[in-house]
C-alpha cells in the first residue's frame, strides 16, 4: 500500500512539473488547452473543498465572477500587474466567502445549494444594473497597455493550479479535513466532538471561494474582456461541479483527473460536432446523470476499484479495506 501511495505522489509531482514545464513550450493550441485545464483544476478543487464539508455549491460562477471583476477593475484603476490583481481577487474572494458562510449560517444541503444559485444570479443582475461600476452589458476591456505575454499567463495559471492542489493537500492533512468530514456526515455530532462547525465552515468557504476567484481573475486577464453574462455564466457553475463528479468526488486527484477529462470531452465534442449549439452542454448534462447513477465515485473510484481487485487477487489479503479511508 505504501509503495502505491508513493507512486501516486511521484505521479502527482511529475504531472505538476509537466504542467508547469509545458508553458515554456511554444505550442499555442496545447498551451491554450492546458491553460483551460489549469483554471478548471482550480475551480474544481475549490468546489470539491466545499463538497467535502457537505456544502453543495451551485454558485461557483459567483466566486469566479467576483474574482474576474476584481482583477480587471483593479488592473485598470491602478495599472496593476497580474500578481498584484491576483492578490486583490484572492482577498475579494475570501471576503465574499466569509460573507456567504456567515449569511448562510447553519444552512445545509438543498438550502445551501439554492442560496448559492441565487447568489450568482443576483450578482449577475446587479452587475448588469450597476453600469457605473461594471460598465453593465456594454462590457469592460482590460487596458491594452497592461496586457502581459501569453506565456506569463500560461505560467501563472499552471503555478496557481499546482498551488491550489497543494492547498487541498495541506487541508487534507490538517484538522480541517476531519472537521469537514464530520460536518458532512453529521453536523450536530461534529459539534458534540468539540468541532466548531461555524468557524470551520467559514474557513473552508473562504479558502474555496478565494481559489475560485483566483481562477476567474487569471481567466479574465487571459480573455481581456468581461460583461455580466461572461463573468457570471452558469457554464462555470456546471464545470465546477462536473469535473470533480467525473473525476471522483471527495478525493484529491478527482478534480484534477476530471478537469483533464472535461476539457478533452469538450474539445472532442467541438471537433466531432463542430460548433453546433448545445452539444457540449448536453454532453456535460449526460455525464452528470450517468456519473451519479452509475459511477458515483467517478474515474478515480473506477481506477481504485481495479487496483484493489488486482491487489486482492495478488496478495489474497482482505486487509485493504482501509485503502480508501486515507484519501477521502
Amino acid at each position: 500500500m505504501a509503495r502505491q501511495s508513493n507512486l501516486m505522489v511521484a505521479l502527482g509531482v511529475l504531472s505538476a512539473l509537466g504542467l508547469v514545464a509545458s508553458t515554456f513550450w511554444d505550442a499555442p493550441q496545447i498551451n491554450n488547452w492546458l491553460f483551460r485545464v489549469s483554471t478548471l483544476i482550480m475551480l474544481a478543487t475549490s468546489w470539491n473543498l466545499m463538497a467535502n464539508a457537505g456544502l453543495v455549491s451551485l454558485g461557483h460562477s459567483a466566486f469566479w465572477g467576483v474574482g474576474s471583476y476584481a482583477a480587471i477593475l483593479s488592473a485598470n484603476a491602478w495599472s496593476g500587474s497580474v500578481l498584484g490583481t491576483l492578490v486583490v481577487a484572492l482577498l475579494a474572494g475570501a471576503l465574499m466567502g466569509l460573507i456567504v458562510a456567515a449569511v448562510t449560517g447553519g444552512l445545509k444541503g438543498i438550502f445551501f445549494a439554492i442560496s448559492t444559485l441565487a447568489l450568482s444570479e443576483g450578482l449577475r443582475i446587479s452587475a448588469l444594473m450597476l453600469p457605473d461600476v461594471t460598465s453593465g452589458a456594454v462590457g469592460l476591456f482590460l487596458r491594452q497597455d497592461l496586457r502581459p505575454s501569453q506565456h506569463t499567463l500560461y505560467l501563472v495559471a499552471a503555478l496557481a493550479a499546482v498551488a491550489s492542489v497543494g492547498v487541498a493537500i495541506l487541508i487534507s492533512c490538517s484538522k480541517l479535513q476531519f472537521a469537514s468530514r464530520a460536518m458532512r456526515d453529521n453536523e450536530a455530532a461534529a459539534q458534540m466532538l468539540g468541532i466548531a462547525p461555524r468557524r470551520q465552515r467559514m474557513i473552508i468557504v473562504a479558502i474555496s471561494s478565494a481559489m475560485a476567484s483566483a481562477a476567474g481573475a487569471i481567466n479574465a486577464w487571459y480573455g481581456g474582456y468581461l460583461d455580466p453574462e461572461v463573468a457570471f455564466t452558469l457554464h462555470n457553475t456546471i464545470l465546477a461541479q462536473i469535473a470533480p463528479i467525473l473525476g471522483g468526488i471527495h478525493t484529491l486527484a478527482g478534480p484534477v483527473i476530471g478537469s483533464f477529462a472535461i476539457i478533452a470531452l469538450s474539445e472532442g465534442t467541438r471537433i466531432w460536432f463542430g460548433n453546433m449549439e448545445g452539444v457540449s452542454q448536453m454532453t456535460f448534462g449526460l455525464v452528470l446523470v450517468v456519473c451519479i447513477l452509475f459511477l458515483p465515485r467517478g474515474i478515480e473510484g473506477v481506477m481504485h476499484r481495479r487496483k484493489k481487485r488486482q491487489a486482492t487477487a495478488g496478495a489474497a489479503s482482505p486487509a485493504l479495506a482501509t485503502g480508501r479511508g486515507g484519501k477521502s
Binding site: V56, I110, I249, M276, M282, F284, I292
Partner: peptide, 25 residues
C-alpha cells in the same frame, strides 16, 4: 442530497440543450 441535486440539475441541462438543438436558441 448532493447526488439528488446534481442528478436533477444534470437532467435539466440535458433537456435544456436538447431544446437548443431542436428549436435553436
Amino acid at each position: 442530497h448532493v447526488n439528488q441535486i446534481l442528478l436533477t440539475f444534470g437532467i435539466g441541462l440535458v433537456l435544456q440543450n436538447a431544446a437548443v438543438m431542436i428549436w435553436k436558441a
